[in-house]
Design a protein around this nucleic acid. Sequence first.
DNA 1: ATGTTGGCTAGAAGCCGACAA
DNA 2: TTGTCGGCTTCTAGCCAACAT
Lengths: 450, 450
Amino acid sequence: MASAAAAPGTSSGGAGGEGGGGTKVNQELWYACAGPLVTLPPAGSLVVYFPQGHSEQVAASMRKDAGAKIPSYPNLPSKLVCILRSVTMLADPDTDEVYARMTLQPVSNVTHCDKETLLASELALKQTRPQTEFFCKTLTASDTSTHGGFSVPRRAAERIFPHLDFSMQPPAQELQARDLHDAIWTFRHIYRGQPKRHLLTTGWSLFVSGKRLLAGDSVLFIRDGRQHLLLGIRRANRQPVNLSSSVLSSDSMHIGILAAAAHAAANNSQFTVFYNPRASPSEFVIPFAKYQKAVYSNQLSLGMRFRMMFETEESATRRYMGTITGISDMDPVRWKNSQWRNIQVAWDEAAPSERRTRVSLWEVEPVIAPFFIYPSPLFTAKRPRQPGITDDDSSEMDNLFKRTMPWFGEEIGKKDLSTQNSLVPGLSLVQWMNKQQQPELLNSLAGKPV
Amino acid sequence: MASAAAAPGTSSGGAGGEGGGGTKVNQELWYACAGPLVTLPPAGSLVVYFPQGHSEQVAASMRKDAGAKIPSYPNLPSKLVCILRSVTMLADPDTDEVYARMTLQPVSNVTHCDKETLLASELALKQTRPQTEFFCKTLTASDTSTHGGFSVPRRAAERIFPHLDFSMQPPAQELQARDLHDAIWTFRHIYRGQPKRHLLTTGWSLFVSGKRLLAGDSVLFIRDGRQHLLLGIRRANRQPVNLSSSVLSSDSMHIGILAAAAHAAANNSQFTVFYNPRASPSEFVIPFAKYQKAVYSNQLSLGMRFRMMFETEESATRRYMGTITGISDMDPVRWKNSQWRNIQVAWDEAAPSERRTRVSLWEVEPVIAPFFIYPSPLFTAKRPRQPGITDDDSSEMDNLFKRTMPWFGEEIGKKDLSTQNSLVPGLSLVQWMNKQQQPELLNSLAGKPV
DNA sequence: ATGTTGGCTAGAAGCCGACAA
DNA sequence: TTGTCGGCTTCTAGCCAACAT
């Protein structure tokens, strides 16, 4: 179904040159480590790139504000529509941190894109993350101490690990799991103790010390297909990543980002960015169709109620409700009329950890009429929260679309994508492009307020 | 004597903000780790900044060529004369790698500099590195294995460590040494075995594992004043420093460097660079007086014989002889008329490790007449090479000056610096600036061939 | 003068069920 | 169901001189 668009991780441009020592990694494992909210646009599709968000991520990576000293690039708009030429999933060989390398090529005129690009862009909206069986556990003090091994949650062990032969006394087996760099780790899996429990013993401490894991960090076990186990980690303490500060000043970094994008935009040439999904919640490259749909569907106003997806402790997703309290530019001087986090919000519940007070248009799901308010708390409470099982079925965008504009009926999202499924009601992206008759979209891209 | 110029490491602008997690470090230790050839210009003095060399260093830090895709900045000259506003010695908290943060401010017209700046710039030439007693040992397999401790070279132990009480059986003591981050490491120093030798036992393995040292890496012990020991390391395997590749593309980095410098040059505003003395031999910020002196003194020509300083395995210095085989731009397109490594050379001896085939004007000591050829091999052979003892007495530049132009007599370098000591014969930098009558210098700065 | 090795020993790593929570 | 702990065992880290270069 999604064969028209190259899947991330298997796209073109995967030569190991650029991207430093990062190694190309297994797609399922990468997604599991990146978290349930992350989906990379497919190579070949149209995306919108926000230099402001990019700058934010770099600043977050270095625990430094995107300083005011950075010169603004008058020729660089607050958003660039690009073709995503390649996207590669990578992992830092030292820290196992996952990140993606994306090669972008600005397009001066969206209507000149070829059919293939438009098709890929439409498919991007329907793209599904690989649905993998996995569990994610935050390590306890006992898990990381030298005194013992790893206590495997019962349900997780039964769901993910190969079944033990319970005729043995005690039941035990050897597990092999492959990490992001294709290194294989071997563990003794045993079912013992009083009461009985699943444990990883021999081999576990090597893994903990090898990855320098501490209590609070998380490990992920994925069952791939039916055979192999994959093994990923997520670190708790987001260290400032001082890295590179000995190479480049943060000023130069920020200028470098802007200048590289500006140069590429001026010449319609390619440039490369790195997206680090766990460094900060800055999804600064989003599918064009997602952006377009949000601009068309979400008629936002002050006081409007909305819901938004967040990641839970156990790597599942949960919706929180809030109210729009303002719509304004984050940085009216350098990024005038940018739609990057231009919506100020207040949340119903107190923040479990950090809750952003500014979000972008395409992140929210507006609730425009009282009778369309989703009974979120009740509904989610009824479903037991299983780690690794998300309540986002990846057709969320369609649900949203139908919920917020139910009068469009059921045919949306059901029919053949390439011919009928619409981003704008009754008109596919391809049809729309062929007509080239909707100046509003280009205007909104140029920075008009929503 | 050098009180007019602030010493590096104690200069202004030492706020910890910029520079990431690097910590400000002890000056002697920094220099010892940086190697015998490195001297940082003092804050407040005039320097020449070579963006080409800077780009080279960044490329070397990432094991990537300074690619051809980097756009050239027409407004950015191949060299910028700057005031060095601040210079801070730093060390990476993770790897202990030493580096310096320098804040530069381009000056549009050198002749407008105030007297203080010119004084500081003259003093820069006479600046001496701190002369410290230290030893440097490359770790063996035994030194780094878990099986035992550290075998201290006899001479080194006697010279650097506090003397043992030989009435004890065996003679032993507790040593405390402070590393770059002011962390204190404690070792048991014992003199035992058959034959007797100096060993560090208890505490050593903690240090090795803590710093993640491998056989081939080096450790340095410095005796500071008469009391404290300082402890530094130098890693052997120059790892590609993949760091930051997950943050910024190398293209963006290179563009960032150029754009930051160009922006600063256009506005006469400050910019910040990081100099990593051990990443690559790219001294891209050099004292203005050193540059000026080289331009005036070194009348180079094809076939000319010269000598040049290199670092030895034991952290001492040695001169190698060579012949000039060409004078041409490294990159005639992007860096036309740059003097950065514009001299092609051939070496008399085969390279012990790597010997550069392109060097810069100020790196060579020309030998212009046969009877002035220094009997280098014989001379250096007569002097035993003690680790930590350099044969550069830091008035080398003056020696060179006198050797290559002996007719200028002995008064050079002897009289009061601020009034008489000349960079140009018979004319101090201050006098020269006051007269403002030597357009050749500015021409040469603008890129005229030597 | 100093790198490596075998022998020995003390202490940490690591396996186990008991006992909470 | 699973985190932590005391008890016990195993194995490695680490001190020593012998030996080699």
